[in-house]
């Protein structure tokens, strides 16, 4: 019937809205790329064994990286009976000075999944001046050997995995690295961070380079990170969000909290770090004033994110 055709046509005309609706999933994807797959980031073949180092997306990024090591017989491809795997990343600058970064020295064996697990929080990306090397040691079938491998550390494009290095009031050097969420949502988000402290060496270096005692970092235990997320954009007038939870340490050694992001965009995670005794090691209180037109104040301990 003509009438129905007319009505249908009219429907189509109006259903085609003037402005398209936002694709919410795609909206978050515009600035955040989420990596979920571990791929080969570096590989070494030595003494008849093949050592495959995996990281998310096959890339070492500045910031927190989960590391997986798989050791196979280079001839047969079989998983080799390996133990005592150690892992030490070292950066050398133009002056020839060495430094490391937070890392797990003794890798943990995940026998069910057939790999050794660790992490590294690279504090700088590789550049002309700064170069990173991995120093591995492992015992395969009773035979122990060392491996050195130069790697390339890239800038982390995802600001939700940002990190910060600072010196606390106790004169110790600390590093806070964001681990999760990679891809936040306008929602409650589980916030996961690692807190690490540089262990100043007590003794002089001994033996063969590198001496792990000179490059030691520990996971900080029993601290608390007070969280106060803000939108720093001047037009947002120091906007904050409700129902956030401070980060406290859980069984996995990492610090867990909750952050609510009320909209997409730039956010600043303002922190105040307290030690076991409740003493403030670093961080300042951010005023609650609503300040439209003025860029939001930040704690002297903060990490900027964007999604």
């Amino acid at each position: 019937m003509k009438i129905l055709l007319f009505m249908a046509a009219l429907c189509v005309v109006v259903m085609s809205c003037t402005k398209g609706k936002t694709d919410y999933e795609a909206e978050i994807d515009t600035v955040v790329t989420e990596h979920v797959e571990f791929k080969e980031a570096a590989t070494v073949t030595t003494n008849g064994y093949h050592i495959r180092i995996e990281a998310l997306n096959g890339t070492f990024y500045k910031g927190y990286n989960e590391i997986r090591l798989k050791i196979t017989n280079s001839q047969t491809g079989e998983i080799s009976n390996t133990s005592g795997v150690t892992f030490l990343p070292i950066m050398t600058n133009a002056m020839g000075e060495h430094q490391s970064c937070p890392h797990r020295y003794q890798l943990m064996e995940r026998s069910d999944e057939k790999y050794f697990s660790g992490y590294a929080v690279f504090t700088e990306k590789s550049s002309l001046d700064d170069s990173w090397n991995l120093y591995l040691s492992l015992t395969v079938n009773g035979q122990t050997f060392q491996v050195e491998k130069s790697i390339n550390v890239q800038e982390q494009a995802n600001k939700n995995l940002n990190m910060t290095v600072f010196t606390g009031k106790d004169n110790e050097q600390y590093i806070i690295a964001l681990i999760s969420p990679q891809k936040p949502k306008v929602s409650e988000n589980e916030l996961l961070a690692g807190i690490y402290r540089y262990q100043k060496p007590i003794d002089n270096p001994s033996g063969v380079f590198p001496d792990p005692t000179q490059f030691s970092y520990t996971e900080v235990n029993g601290y608390m990170l007070q969280l106060d997320p803000r939108m720093p954009e001047p037009s947002m007038g120091n906007h904050s969000s409700p129902n956030n939870k401070d980060l406290t340490q859980q069984n996995d050694g990492l610090y867990h909290g909750v952050v609510n992001y009320t909209m997409t965009g730039n956010w600043t995670l303002n922190f105040i770090m307290q030690n076991q005794d409740g003493q403030i090691i670093k961080g300042t209180v951010v005023p609650d004033d609503f300040t439209p037109g003025i860029a939001g104040a930040k704690s002297d301990l903060h990490i900027d994110i964007l999604f």
Binding site: M231, E233, S235, M236, M263, T264, G265, N266, L306
Partner: peptide, 16 residues
Amino acid sequence: EMRMYPQDRNNRTMFA
């Protein structure tokens, strides 16, 4: 929907 534009339009818009 609301989409707020930052003063520096090069910055990310804010959406909710």
